[in-house]
Design a binder for these strands. Structure first.
Lengths: 343, 343
DNA sequence: GCGTTATCAGAAAGCGTTTTCATAGTATAC
DNA sequence: GTATACTATGAAAACGCTTTCTGATAACGC
């Protein structure tokens, strides 16, 4: 191990400033009054020695890690950078550190790596943690905030998510009202995926409120995935199912839908209107530009941190926060876009 | 603050197992032999009490944080998720925690938040830290690995980056050899951006090795940005500069180039071939599909962690690691792509 | 003036581990 | 059988802070 000469400690500062270490600590933390002349000497000593308190020692003594843990399953997806950006910014501005951890299947790890022993609270994204794990944490009252995942009823854990249902409803209503579509395919996401379930509900409610009866034959599985969506669309086309629009579940799946339709020589949007969900980066660049839903993902991250901090301060947190979604109209629904290339 | 009944400590485990805390510690860390029958009792006690050692106490006693810090400037960019994924995976498989921090301009923070006091070593992405800061860290021999940034000569800090020059050279040579282009525009990235400098060098060398003289009038600033690239191309077109190809610096800029060329009714690739760099997600979806360079970003992250761990172990680290880049031929160069929609 | 109350600062007790040092017991050597 | 060398464990000293408890001074009320 490379040798580094021990860096200075609070005792060195105290000695140089001619005070006790308690006083130095008080100057650093500013939680107990210290007379200005003394404080000044201490501050000088600190900067002269370039003293930085050891995080571990503070944590041990104060029983606060001053750290928030973020736990998620996959980094992939256009989603993640925005979420992380929000989380990081808010965490930092609240004066906390951010420890991150993914639970990719790969190495089945024995012990939950983030918890009481190294964080003050946890942010959990979608289903990155087993319900059982969540329950355990919740039982010991460990501060917890979920994102895009509703907890079991008995767990009163705050949740931040987006208006999936509203978004889907806007999308489908737009297809019905503005473009007179009536046979609209819905591509479901993965089994049990909560976002997907809400989107389906929005889809159904839009149909219902416009007096269109729900046809189970138009709901197939797209898995929020290009290939799966492609395959599902191929099958619909081969089976000769009739439809005049597709709500692809998300933008990734929309790419698969585009491919299948083009291959079958169906024009988008004339023969079939297509809409996505998420407004990922490529949505505005594909042709025709994709009509979709935009959600304030970054804000989801920020809000999750805010709620967690409420919890950490022993304050009440909001049990459910739903972020507004916004319809982004481009060309794939049949509208004329004014900005196929810019937001 | 929410009350939580103190969780168990190593002393509780020791008591239950009927041994001393030293023995418990030895069982946990496995660095000193403990007779199997004793170890078994200890392990039973640990799982019965659900004991998890406090990270802070371990750190304080052992003087190792077991944590790697990642410091970067911006989360945006198609780049980041991949890099983070590699870093996260490798960090975890090496048994370290990952603390992340961004240095967005916004809150000018007084003190570097990641350092000796809370991490064992630091991963620094591009220019997220001032040279002065780097120098300080390097002077106290703090383990450091840079990504996509070469350190000043006197700092013998390992660097991981990609073959920017090779990539650019492949791209430009392809345009010259396969598509007989000779007047190739190069859109530079931001001033002082190291990736951009190397790409420019590759561009020049490709020209030179094919006997094409360098024309400074064909090199303009695109800033790796759609709007800037658009503006730069508009200007070239208005000025009546002649060219038959554009190396846009990166894929984002290529979008701006596309827009400008389409607006001027120049066909891509017939009138003007266009190539990018990075192979971001949308590159295969735009029309025509973009010929570009793919770099193993995730591997950059993994390798950076590996080198840092060498340093942490007191071993020698490789001072420069250059990751191979790969030409991804699609349609915008004039080739017929076999996969405009799949990698 | 004297007793009472505020201030400010120091002493010292933790916080929960790792690690060094010491020791009892066992095995090995002759 | 005694001297020697291990081995497995325990006792106790760090590690570098925060925080409680105390005490010394100064300020105040009357």
């Amino acid at each position: 191990m490379i040798h580094r000469n021990r860096s200075s400690t609070i005792a060195d500062v105290a000695r140089l400033a001619g005070v006790s270490i308690a006083t130095v600590s008080r100057v650093i933390n500013g939680n107990t009054p210290v007379i200005e002349s003394t404080a000044l000497r201490v501050r000088d000593a600190i900067s002269e020695l370039k003293f930085v308190p050891r995080a571990a020692a503070r944590t041990l003594a104060s029983r606060r890690t001053n750290t928030i843990g973020l736990i998620f399953s996959e980094i992939g997806g256009a989603f993640f950078p925005l979420l992380l950006k929000g989380i990081e910014a808010e965490t930092r501005s609240a004066g906390y550190e951010l420890l991150i951890h993914s639970t990719q299947a790969a190495h089945a790890q024995k012990r939950r790596p983030l918890g009481e022993h190294n964080t003050d609270g946890l942010l959990v994204f979608t289903s990155s943690l087993e319900i059982e794990e969540l329950r355990k944490l919740s039982q010991i009252n460990f501060p917890l905030v979920l994102m895009h995942q509703t907890p079991p009823d008995e767990m009163n854990t705050p949740v931040i998510t987006i208006e999936n249902k509203d978004g889907a409803e806007m999308l489908v209503s737009h297809l019905i009202e503005k473009h007179a579509r009536r046979r609209i395919v819905f591509l479901q996401g993965p089994e049990g995926h909560e976002d997907s379930q809400w989107r389906e509900r929005g889809y159904r409610e839009a149909l219902e409120s416009h007096g269109i009866s729900f046809d189970p034959g138009l709901v197939v599985s797209g898995e929020f995935d290009e290939e799966q969506a492609f395959a599902a669309m191929r099958k619909l086309l081969l089976d000769g199912i009739e439809f005049d629009a597709v709500f692809s579940g998300d933008d990734d799946a929309a790419i698969g839908v585009y491919r299948a339709l083009k291959m079958a020589n169906r024009s988008i949007p004339d023969d079939v209107a297509v809409v996505g969900f998420d407004d990922v980066q490529f949505s505005r660049y594909i042709s025709p530009a994709l009509t979709t839903i935009r959600a304030p993902i970054e804000e989801v991250g920020r809000e999750a941190v805010r709620q967690l901090i409420h919890l950490l301060n022993g304050e009440q947190a909001q049990s459910l926060t739903l972020m507004r979604t916004e319809l982004v109209i481009r060309e794939s629904c049949g509208c004329k876009s004014h900005d196929s290339h810019k937001s």
